[in-house]
Design a protein around this nucleic acid. Structure first.
Length: 350
DNA sequence: CAAACGTGGAA
DNA sequence: TTTCCAAGTTT
């Protein structure tokens, strides 16, 4: 290992000590990291911004302060608490993993990357991050920030995802034996605040002197990525069914979505399946006189754009579900798609 | 390996 | 307005 390469870790750690972000899940200098908080934050942060996670993390740990309390939680309540954060498999796996820690590991998180990797929802990145940050293991932590920083440092211009192997090897070569967790967090802070995707602030970068991407003049073009495909358009109908019997007036019919797939396990308004043309009143949850509102709700998912029609009715539902007070619908824990539909319906004259 | 899987904010 | 993208994992 040459002298320049081995100095990267030390320079980055010095920068981190001076400029690292203060975040609720991060141990302060001298504090011992709490594996539960590290794990929870890492899962929440998967494909999710720090700004979105911060308040949700605070609320979560106030309600479920440790792995035992989460393992004992009602899964429906956990799903509702995750509502709005997206990628709901994360919440389902959070409960599974918490129960595995309690049932299979005597309530204490496993301490090695390999054991952590076996828990549900911990992939290559998260297992390495928890091992390094919570337990000090020298794990090679590679997320999108690290990919970007490393691709620029070493001027790796092979396109992702093919370049993953080369990037990981380069990250391995600069990961220190000591303070591997701080090093990983430093790389991510650097990627988030200095080595940003569009307009990197190279003049503030502690690694500028070592950066081949900077030396070559166009660090912002790295890493090279394949273009994303266009998202297809899909259509659907959501049904707002209010009760007309005694005790059901002022209540709306909610269902639980199937445990897997899109918005899996989440409470929801009834819908039919999505299709390439508006499905109108197919799969309505009651035989009644539906009124379709003259507005639609648009919602973009990762892999398709959805346009929802809104059908309003009153009557007796078919199938499984529950009546929920309209006045408390915000506490039902609906995913954003349905929260948008509810807002549009309540803003209409219904 | 490609595709499924959410959402909100920045540019 | 549209596109990009954020501390990825699972199948």
């Amino acid at each position: 290992m040459d002298a320049k390469r081995s100095s990267i870790g030390a320079e980055l750690l010095a920068w981190y000590d001076a400029h690292g972000r203060v975040l609720p899940w991060r141990a302060r200098p001298g504090e011992t990291a709490d594996p539960y908080r590290v794990w929870l934050s890492e899962v929440m942060l998967q494909q999710t911004t720090v700004a979105a996670v911060r308040p949700r993390f605070e609320n979560w740990v106030a309600r479920w302060p440790d792995v035992a309390s989460l393992a004992a939680a009602d899964e429906g309540e956990v799903m509702a608490a995750w509502a709005g954060l997206g990628y709901y498999a994360r919440a389902r796996n959070l409960v599974k993993a918490a129960r595995a820690v309690v049932d299979d590991h005597r309530g204490a998180f496993p301490t090695t990357e390999a054991e952590l990797r076996a828990l549900p929802g911990l992939g290559a990145y998260t297992a390495a991050a928890v091992a390094a940050i919570a337990f000090g293991e020298r794990a090679v932590v590679v997320d999108a920030n690290v990919e970007r920083v490393v691709a620029r440092l070493f001027a790796i211009d092979a396109p992702l995802p093919g370049a993953r192997g080369a990037i990981r090897a380069a990250a391995d070569s600069i990961t220190p034996t000591l303070r591997a967790g701080d090093f990983a967090q430093a790389m991510m802070d650097l990627g988030a605040t200095i080595c940003s995707p569009k307009r990197p602030r190279c003049l503030l970068c502690p690694l500028r002197e070592e950066c081949r991407g900077f030396a070559e003049g166009e660090p912002e073009r790295l890493p090279v990525k394949a273009k994303k495909k266009a998202r297809p358009a899909r259509f659907g109908t959501v049904f707002w069914l209010e009760g007309d019997g005694p005790g059901m007036t002022g209540s709306v019919w909610l269902v639980r979505r199937p445990p897997k797939g899109l918005l899996g396990g989440m409470r929801a308004l009834p819908t039919g399946s999505w299709s390439e043309e508006p499905p109108l009143l197919a799969d309505a949850p009651a035989a009644t006189d539906w009124r379709v509102l003259p507005v639609t709700v648009a919602h973009g998912f990762t892999h398709f754009d959805l346009t929802l029609s809104l059908a309003i009715g009153r009557g007796t539902p078919q199938g499984e579900g529950e009546w929920w007070p309209v006045a408390d619908v915000e506490s039902a824990g609906l995913p954003t798609l349905f929260a948008k539909a509810v807002r549009a319906i309540l803003e209409s004259d219904r």
